[in-house]
């Protein structure tokens, strides 16, 4: 049986899709059979981030409505073995996403895969609630700023009440906090909330901290998940996150203010 992980946040633009792509790729690189599903019907992005937008024929809605088989819709990742992508529909109405349909798809995938990563749309409406409904674990992506923290808090409330595990009184969805776009310099100068501020309010286990990095934007535009870029701080931070998800104890990196050394100031080389 696969473990179903939802990547969610409430707020848009905090890095859900980037994180879902990076974490799914990271899990697959570690030898786990992984599928990542885009739940953002009408605003699909995951295929772009994963660099497979030109190979989309069928999508999740086609499968739910019986117009295509699951294997026809799954796209095999070109770079990573063990990794498949199930894209969302860009044209369909999002009401076509039904709980029964999603359950059947997840059940079928569960037989084949070790991990199912669900990339949730922003907001707390139908699509976001369906993405989290069947989850075993949740990665709550949060930026170090107040509105993102409040929206994540709202999502955590929904995870505790509006999921299958909650409704069946099963053990609750395991919640992980993933802080993205963290800039230690701006935290030091007081522009951003500190790591401790965020942790204190959300009060859940921290699974990773991704520094603000040019590598992320570059990776998105090239359609290569940032974990492939192991020279970058963001790539390493996502790899650490995946290790922690797999239960390993990895020390936290990239959260401290780095004074620029003499050499990097002379040659202008910032962090990649």
């Amino acid at each position: 049986m696969a473990k179903i992980i939802v990547v969610t946040s409430g707020k848009g633009g905090v890095g859900k899709t980037t994180s879902a792509a990076a974490i799914a790729t990271g899990l697959a690189l570690r030898g786990n059979k992984t599928v990542v599903i885009d739940f953002d019907v009408g605003l699909r992005n995951l295929d772009l981030i994963m660099g497979c937008e030109r190979r989309v024929v069928y999508d999740l809605i086609n499968v739910i409505q019986g117009e295509a088989g699951l294997n026809q819709a799954l796209i095999r990742d070109k770079r990573t073995e063990n990794l498949h992508i199930l894209p969302a529909s860009q044209t369909r109405d999002k009401e076509a996403l039904t709980a029964d349909g999603v359950e059947k798809v997840l059940e079928a995938l569960s037989q084949e895969y070790d991990f199912i990563v669900c990339d949730s749309p922003a907001g707390i409406e139908h699509g976001a609630q369906l993405a989290m409904y069947f989850a075993d674990e949740a990665i709550v992506v949060t930026n170090p700023e107040v509105s993102s923290v409040r929206d994540s808090d709202r999502i955590l409330g929904l995870l505790a009440s509006k999921t299958r595990r909650a409704e069946r009184s099963e053990p609750p969805v395991k919640e992980h906090l993933l802080i993205t776009r963290y800039d230690p310099n701006r935290v030091t100068s007081g522009d951003m909330l500190t790591l401790d501020d965020v942790r204190e309010i959300l009060a859940i286990n921290l699974v990773g901290l991704i520094p603000e990095s040019e590598a992320v934007l570059r990776a998105s535009n090239q359609g290569v998940p940032v974990v492939h870029d192991m020279d970058s701080d963001a790539g390493q931070a996502y790899a650490d996150t995946v290790s922690r998800l797999l239960g390993e104890d990895v020390p936290l990196r990239f959260h401290e203010f780095q004074k620029k050394g003499l050499l990097s100031r002379m040659f202008g080389g910032g962090r990649r």
Binding site: R150, D153, L156, G157, S161
Partner: peptide, 26 residues
């Protein structure tokens, strides 16, 4: 536990004791 943004916890009779934080928006 934590009462989170958007949650409403009420005691229609008697006192309410929350052992945990009440977050903004709760």
């Amino acid at each position: 536990g934590t009462v989170r943004s958007g949650q409403q916890i009420s005691a229609p009779e008697g006192d309410l004791v929350v052992v945990g934080a009440v977050n903004p928006g709760a």
